[in-house]
Amino acid sequence: MQRECKENLDSIASLLEKMSSEHYQFPSNYLSGASIGQHIRHILEFYTCLSQAYREGGAINYDLRKRTLLLEQDPRAAIALIRQVGHWLESAPITGAVTLVAAYAVNADKTCTIPSSFQRELAYCLEHSIHHQALIKIGLFEQGISDLIDPHFGIAPSTIKFRRQRSTEST
């Protein structure tokens, strides 16, 4: 799972290396005014939250993650953090049990505690990233710069495999 997460983050870094700050910060009409940078910040903060829980021990609470606005303003800062997270992902096997703490109701302060594992949370971060990459792709199309990404950006591996299989069956 660590390799898959790193590959996904590397694809994001590859995109950011080609983007201008203006494109990165552009408030998309199709994304309710959110920018590509805001989606990137969101992705990276989940990985940061997870890595912090792994290094320091304790539960994971994505709701209480530190929001770093520089990550949504400066693609170079995001690339630097991607490299840090990538180094963490490559450093050693990330295993063990962990507790996820989350509040799923808007109008209540009640939190849930859910047994999990670091491998499961890595899978969640990867799926979460792919979901946001699909949204980022919409922002890229809106700005006319979708040529900056490969055709599989923002598409789940299972979908890519399904499409390949369907394509070979129809020929």
Score class of each variant (00 low, 15 high):
80 A>R: 14
57 G>Q: 09
157 P>M: 10
83 R>L: 08
81 L>D: 03
5 C>D: 06
158 S>T: 12
79 I>W: 10
59 A>M: 01
101 V>W: 00
42 H>K: 02
34 A>K: 15
70 L>S: 14
92 A>E: 15
76 R>L: 13
32 S>Q: 12
132 H>C: 03
112 C>A: 14
142 E>R: 08
35 S>P: 14
78 A>C: 03
140 L>W: 00
141 F>D: 11
29 N>Q: 14
153 F>V: 08
61 N>I: 08
65 R>T: 08
65 R>C: 05
135 L>W: 05
50 L>T: 03
3 R>Y: 11
70 L>V: 13
29 N>M: 09
152 H>M: 06
164 R>W: 11
169 E>I: 04
43 I>C: 08
17 E>F: 06
15 L>R: 04
128 H>F: 01
5 C>T: 03
148 L>R: 08
108 A>Q: 13
65 R>H: 04
118 F>K: 05
14 S>C: 09
105 A>H: 11
36 I>G: 00
36 I>H: 00
60 I>T: 07
147 D>V: 09
125 C>S: 10
158 S>R: 03
75 P>S: 02
92 A>L: 11
102 A>I: 15
116 S>F: 01
24 Y>H: 07
94 I>Q: 09
123 A>K: 08
89 L>K: 08
81 L>H: 12
47 Y>F: 15
122 L>Y: 07
121 E>L: 04
44 L>C: 04
59 A>K: 05
21 S>V: 07
117 S>W: 01
112 C>V: 04
122 L>I: 08
156 A>L: 01
104 Y>H: 12
139 G>K: 06
39 H>Y: 10
153 F>I: 09
